[in-house]
Design a protein around this nucleic acid. Structure first.
Length: 286
DNA sequence: TTTGATGT
């Protein structure tokens, strides 16, 4: 009696085993390469969720020209944005593109129309001007992807936030040569969403790091700005410690710092060396 | 030279 040839199912299993292995290898190579980019595009690591299985902080890293985004499919917001800014002597940037573009990587479709009539601005997280000034046109266009946008009240977006971003590029980057910025929304309970599912933040944080060099130690300055600002408040009113932001967001920032350095840099508010008092009351442009 | 919305 002749032996039966291997059954279809068995042959399929054998072939798919090879396919799976090839897929795993390719994914591994891709992931390794991505991790290398993330390392280069952040300072002391990208933000890490304190509790990895909490839906509120789960996010995927999206790599853009000039900045990284930690996208949350469940909040339909970028939970964090990380970028390096360098001193630019004579910045000349391109025009605003005039529309915000969909980002297929969001999976859940998030479009500019979702914001229309909501009362909220489409608030850049990685900023248009500073990113364009440092990284050029393609990076500028990348900031107009909807994956870089969070709902911001007009008085926040056009006034306090505009002033803060102006200070970061014009004062801090100019003063230190290079700064690293981490910024994003803060969500308190209860959950509030626009009619389009996009969650509405209660506040926004921004952490600026001057990395130091040689004998100069790193410095950090951090802010939390609530949605319901008036607009002309002095910026130093919003100063907080990085620990405050970690407690309110559930992220661990700069996780590659030693415990000693983290304690030293993140537990308090120390504005010495930033020249903030000179620019804290600068008026908004709009 | 830095933020946006709206209507056509």
């Amino acid at each position: 009696m002749a032996r039966r040839r291997p059954g279809l199912l068995k042959r399929f299993r054998r072939m798919s085993g090879v396919g799976l292995m090839a897929t795993a290898v390719l994914y591994g190579l891709w992931y390794y390469q991505e991790r290398t980019y993330w390392e280069q595009m952040s300072w002391m690591g990208t933000p890490r969720a304190e509790v990895w299985y909490d839906w509120k902080t789960i996010n995927r890293t999206l790599r853009n020209d000039g900045f990284l985004t930690g996208w949350s499919d469940l909040r339909a917001n970028p939970l964090w944005t990380v970028y390096r800014l360098d001193r630019v002597n004579h910045p000349a940037i391109g025009d605003r593109p005039g529309h915000f573009s969909d980002d297929w990587r969001t999976l859940w479709p998030v479009t500019s129309d979702d914001y229309t009539g909501s009362g909220y601005d489409r608030g850049h997280q990685a900023p248009n001007y500073a990113i364009a000034a440092v990284y050029g046109r393609q990076a500028q266009l990348d900031t107009f992807q909807m994956s870089n946008i969070s709902p911001q009240s007009p008085d926040l977006n056009r006034r306090v936030w505009q002033r803060l971003e102006e200070v970061v590029i014009d004062q801090f980057a100019a003063r230190f040569g290079t700064v690293w910025v981490t910024t994003g929304p803060i969500f308190d309970d209860p959950i509030k969403r626009m009619s389009s599912f996009i969650e509405i933040p209660d506040a926004f944080y921004k952490i600026v790091v001057a990395p130091g060099s040689g004998d100069a130690p790193p410095r950090m300055i951090a802010f939390i700005v609530p949605q319901d600002v008036h607009g002309d408040e002095p910026l130093d009113r919003f100063l907080v410690s990085v620990d405050d932001i970690e407690a309110r967001t559930g992220f661990n920032f700069f996780s590659e710092l030693s415990d000693d350095m983290a304690e030293q840099l993140e537990s308090g508010v120390d504005t010495r060396g930033w020249g903030l008092e000179k620019v804290a009351r600068q008026p908004a442009r709009f």
